[in-house]
């Protein structure tokens, strides 16, 4: 089922929802009311109750999916528009700078951007600054390329150079000489013999860099050592925790920011809007916004209850 806005969620749940959603929401609402009562009565609430609430609020939308309509905000849309406006055959580098722990947040962005860049017939170069990113990168390529882009040829339309040790030192070298750090691609084929790397010597020859990550080295290092140094547009897809730290660089030093699962969901919605062929593919970002929203509503309720309890408690102290 589809809702226009999160607030409508609670209102319309009774009419068009599946039985599961209905029961789940009822449990949450009743539980919250009980909690409000206990808070006002100043009865100590075990913290494990809070965990239980979050667990229920997250589980229900996973079991009975709820999706919301997403609209891309300017910070995300700028990335989409850039990939859309680059002429066909432009060189885009996607760097998988994350590990399995960050993957639930960052992987959906990587999938969406990868689909977009390939659908737009850009030449895509994949790499990773994280050792753990290479495995994720390989799996992403195996999952998406043969099924959705069977006519794309490794080495001609895309290439993966994989991971190389050296952290931000790698960036410092590839900004002036790419092949010094990556003499061959992930299959040990020399870059010189791959058409993707024709007339390509350094990051200055890239039309766009998109980095997915949230740790170090990651988005900030790409901006510092490649974006600002070589004047290459850098777009970042980051885990929510680091998104606030990227905003100071927007819009002059960073083209756009996808922050957390919301950023991923926005990009996915924009992609489906322009490329309906991907509507069939999974959109983990948009799917995850359902649990996300319900969990946020519960957390907001907790914050409100906490404050209500606090004020009631203060009144009680003042009275006697």
């Amino acid at each position: 089922m589809m809702f226009d806005s999160p607030m409508l969620l609670l209102l319309t749940a009774g009419s068009g929802a599946t039985v599961g959603t209905y029961i789940g929401l009822a449990i949450i609402v009743l539980g919250l009311l009980a909690l409000l009562y206990t808070s006002i009565k100043a009865i100590e609430v075990d913290r494990r109750i809070v965990f239980l609430f979050i667990f229920v609020a997250v589980s229900i939308p996973i079991l009975f999916p709820i999706t919301f309509e997403e609209k891309a905000t300017p910070v995300v849309k700028r990335i989409f528009d850039k990939i859309e406006s680059l002429p066909e055959g432009s060189r885009i580098l996607l760097s998988f700078d994350f590990d399995p722990a960050m993957a639930p947040e960052v992987q959906p962005m990587a999938d969406a951007v990868m689909r977009h860049a390939l659908a737009k017939n850009h030449r895509v170069i994949f790499m990773s600054l994280w050792a753990t990113g290479q495995g994720l990168l390989d799996r992403t390529m195996q999952r998406i390329l043969p099924n959705e882009f069977p006519d794309k040829v490794d080495g001609v339309d895309f290439a993966s150079v994989g991971y190389t040790a050296g952290n931000e030192g790698v960036l410092n070298v590839i900004v002036s000489d790419f092949k010094k750090m990556f003499p061959s691609d992930a299959n040990s084929i020399p870059l010189d013999s791959l058409p993707v790397f024709n007339r390509f010597s350094s990051c200055k020859d890239l039309d766009l860099v998109v980095t997915f990550g949230g740790g170090k080295p990651g988005a900030k290092e790409w901006v510092l050592f490649v974006g600002d140094k070589a004047n290459v547009p850098v777009a970042v897809g980051v885990a929510a925790v680091v998104a606030p730290q990227m905003y100071p660089y927007f819009p002059n030093q960073v083209l756009g920011i996808m922050g957390g699962i919301k950023g991923a969901a926005e990009y996915e919605s924009e992609l489906i809007k322009h490329y309906p062929q991907f509507a069939e593919q999974p959109t983990p970002g948009m799917v995850m916004m359902g649990p996300q929203t319900l969990a946020h509503i519960v957390i907001i309720a907790f914050i409100v209850f906490g404050n209500v309890a606090y004020f009631f408690g203060r009144r009680r102290e003042e009275k006697p």
């Binding site: 997250v58 996973i62 639930p104 957390g260 919301k262 995850m288 649990p291 996300q292 969990a295 946020h296």
Partner: peptide, 26 residues
């Protein structure tokens, strides 16, 4: 205010990770 925004983003990030794990379980 910045810390508040940061906190909000962190909550979102942590919930995403939980969703990832629960999706695996379910």
């Amino acid at each position: 205010i910045t810390f508040g925004a940061s906190f909000g983003y962190t909550v979102m990030g942590r919930i995403s990770l939980l969703v990832g794990r629960l999706t695996f379980l379910f």
